[in-house]
């Protein structure tokens, strides 16, 4: 598995758009939700890694299309809301819509194949996701929600580390050029 780190702004023509086999993205999103729900019953340690968020970031960065990235984020977030009890539908949807848009916008400009780049991006987007989530809960629902704390910081680092492994695994689902 080789990694190429090419930092800096690049034009869209120089950045490769990765394609996947039919149904890969939908299956990966559903599997992420299922695994998250399955692992969550084993306790709080599972809260440190949010698989739906990682899948949103990965496919947003890989497809490099802001429109499809934000729609994918919206779909995954709404499905996540639907499986909760007291979360109104749209809470995680809004947050992941923004994450999908930002991830695909970043991916359209920067090649994110290097594991350090992926780690950093996931950490930043994790906190961005939490920021949007907290702002939505406070502004629209009147719930107290933290913007940042130690638990979230540790979770972001854990998610970033797990993302490096997960993204390398998902890279194998790409259709050969």
């Amino acid at each position: 598995m080789s990694f190429a780190f090419t930092p800096g702004i690049q034009s869209q023509e120089n950045v490769e758009v990765h394609k996947y086999y039919t149904g890969t993205i939908a299956a990966s999103a559903i599997l992420a939700i299922v695994l998250q729900a399955f692992l969550h019953k084993y306790g709080q340690w599972a809260e440190f890694v949010e698989l739906p968020l990682l899948v949103t970031v990965y496919f947003g960065v890989s497809r490099r299309n802001p429109a499809s990235g934000l729609l994918l984020g919206a779909a995954i977030g709404i499905l996540q809301d639907a499986l909760s009890h007291d979360n109104p539908i749209g809470l995680y949807g809004i947050a992941k819509t923004f994450v999908g848009y930002v991830a695909s916008s970043v991916g359209a400009r920067i090649d994110m194949e290097h594991p350090l780049s992926r780690f950093g991006l996931v950490v930043v987007l994790f906190h961005f996701h939490q920021f949007v989530l907290a702002a939505t809960q406070r502004g629209l629902l009147g719930r107290p929600a933290p913007f940042f704390n130690l638990h979230l910081f540790i979770a972001s680092l854990a998610s970033g580390g797990f993302a490096v492994l997960l993204f390398a695994l998902l890279d194998r689902l790409r259709r050969p050029a």
């Binding site: 299922v34 998250q36 399955f38 019953k41 499905l79 996540q80 809301d81 009890h85 979360n87």
Partner: peptide
């Protein structure tokens, strides 16, 4: 049998 839980860290529910 418990077959799953909520998919987000805010809710504490099981299925």
């Amino acid at each position: 049998r418990v077959i799953g839980a909520s998919a987000d860290p805010i809710s504490h529910t099981i299925f």
